[in-house]
Nucleic acid binder design. Structure first.
Length: 267
DNA sequence: ATGCCTGCGGTTCGCAGA
């Protein structure tokens, strides 16, 4: 079972790039973030042609997440508990969470997660990031109690450690590298989740994001903010992880690259 | 110090991203 997570930065602007990558990498499951469209504008047919079942939790202009799966998807959850009562967004809840069970011979529950960016610090946006993180934490605790294979995949918008940035000092004032953001990610992991990149002993400098600006890619000024966090039952079946840095060289690239996890689920 | 680049919506620019 090959599970990918990728912030595509608009699925419609990126469609040829996304299709090309999916055809080459052939993941069984792909968790997409920042699709930037409502459900009706998601390019469902093009992805179904590649053999994927499609679930979407979309939003106009911003955010939006999707799950593609070659196996049937069940038990779909759109949004986190509390999305409708957080009261921060005048235009309604932001579409940042989608969860489903992949009905493989040995099922695995997956989530596609797009955590709020939170910049600038000292504003309601940063408060929203932390409150969203608390709601994710509470929901992850409930999911872990199921004691089943689980992969919480996505763009967490947190730089976990200084080793996860080429120039950590450049991020000191940024929401992604605040002590509160890093503590929230640690607390989530301390519930009993395993970062696939750590299980695979990926070396420092295995970044997942490079800004479009200021030649960040050419100078390798990257950060690692996209993760697959595994429950013990999934970590037990961990077989490998790859960060597809080559995707940043494609035509019309996303500013993020895919992270791909292989689990031995007997398929 | 600021903007750099990209996508979106809508209109020729502002907002958001990270």
């Amino acid at each position: 079972m090959r599970i990918a997570t990728w912030n595509v930065n608009s699925v419609n602007a990126r469609l040829p790039t996304v299709l090309e990558w999916l055809e080459a990498a052939r993941p069984d499951v792909a968790c997409l973030q920042e699709i930037k469209c409502v459900d009706e504008k998601f390019p469902r047919e093009a992805l179904e042609t590649l053999g994927y079942n499609v679930e979407v939790h979309g939003q106009k202009t911003y955010n939006g997440v999707a799950i593609l799966s070659k196996h049937r998807l069940s038990d779909v959850r759109r949004g986190l508990p509390g999305d409708d009562t957080s009261g921060v967004e005048a235009e309604g809840p932001q579409a940042r969470y989608l969860e489903a069970v992949v009905e493989a011979p040995q099922p695995v529950r997956v989530a596609s997660i797009y955590l709020p960016n939170g910049n600038p610090i000292g504003t309601a946006k940063f408060d929203y990031k932390l409150s969203w993180f608390r709601r994710l934490h509470d929901h992850a605790r409930d999911l872990l109690a199921l004691e089943e294979p689980l992969a919480l995949c996505g763009d967490y918008n947190v730089i976990p450690t200084p080793q996860d940035a080429k120039n950590p000092e450049a991020w000191l004032g940024d929401a992604l590298f605040q002590p509160e953001s890093r503590a929230a990610l640690r607390a989530l992991k301390w519930l009993g989740l395993y970062d696939a990149s750590e299980l695979g002993n990926q070396p420092p400098g295995t970044f997942t994001f490079w800004d479009y600006q200021a030649g960040a890619w050419q100078r390798d000024h990257g950060i690692r903010i996209d993760f697959a966090l595994l429950s013990p039952q999934a970590a037990d079946r961990f077989r490998g992880v790859e960060t597809h840095k080559d995707a940043r060289e494609m035509d019309k690239p996303s500013d993020h690259v895919p992270v791909v996890v292989d689990l031995d689920l007997g398929d």
